[in-house]
Nucleic acid binder design. Structure first.
Lengths: 158, 158
DNA sequence: CATAAATTTGACCATAATGCTCAAATTCTA
DNA sequence: TAGAATTTGAGCATTATGGTCAAATTTATG
């Protein structure tokens, strides 16, 4: 498992904001010398915290091993408030309103099941949430990817 | 809606592979002059096909408006074959094995419900898939994000 | 089909960024 | 506290960038 210090984090956050940011700007952001930023960046890329393609950061490498999909049943009148509350939780990575019964689908991540339980309790305390169902993602067989669709787009849709 | 030609696609695919690729390399990949690659990149960034600077692609902007989550019930013995078959489908963006009954969770994207139906039929034809349940994502309230978790990581876990 | 509009190209240039080395200073670890 | 690892600043050669421009090419439109 990879551990990050303040400098790594600042570099990662800057890269998320703008993946094409210059190394010299990274150095400024992180408050270190350009040389340092450059070697940190190299190390992050080698350590595979920074994934090749697909989505930005590999959170598994950082110790966030538990991934869960949570479906919430929500009182329609309070939907906006529920969404707002969910967004405040850093462990909530994604929120969609889904068909069915005005349900809400949430992607949750946690370091372990204990932390997950804690987050789930937090969610259930939100006013307007009437029920929840949690599904654990045991193993990822395909990480988010868009390349094949784009290649397909090239050959067909046009 | 944004339309892409061959050059745009090659640039996007190269950026997905390596978001920090140089403009001159992009030009080579796409087989155009550096000047052209540079202006195409600018245009892609302006058009917001490229989200937040370069890493992620906004498929909605390209006309992929239908997002669905599909849960499959799978014959355990044929799980590997099912996964392999699913991966062949470009519209399948993500696959996770989930708890429950050895189920498989799939993120699907399509241009319209008609195309979605076609993909769903394709999935149901896969040997080993015994049942499926589709949930439509009507509206995204929070697109995949990791920054808040990283910031939280900075303040706590260390 | 002809013309206007848009895009691409290659060339050029000044500036900035990069990758590299190195020795000294600093911080971390055992 | 000694040794290891990291950071720093400086310098240097090479490459990338962003910009302009006129000519060539492609695309759109009447």
């Amino acid at each position: 498992m990879v551990r990050l210090d303040e400098v790594d984090l600042r570099i990662l956050l800057a890269l998320i904001r703008d993946p094409r940011i210059q190394v010299s700007e990274l150095a400024d952001e992180a408050g270190v010398a350009r040389n340092t930023a450059q070697s940190r960046l190299r190390r992050l890329q080698r350590s595979e915290v920074l994934r090749e393609g697909g989505r930005d950061i590999d959170l598994g490498v950082l110790g966030y091993d538990v991934l869960a999909f949570v479906t919430l049943e929500v009182n329609h009148r309070e939907l906006d408030a529920v969404i707002t509350a969910l967004r405040q939780i850093p462990n909530v990575l994604e929120i969609h309103e889904t068909s069915g019964r005005g349900d809400v689908w949430v992607r949750l991540i946690a370091t372990d099941t204990h932390q997950l339980q804690s987050v789930l309790r937090q969610i259930l305390r939100i006013k307007g949430v009437t029920r929840s169902e949690t599904t654990f993602a045991l193993h990822s067989h395909l990480a988010y990817r868009t390349a094949p669709l784009l290649e397909h787009y090239a050959e067909h849709d046009h």
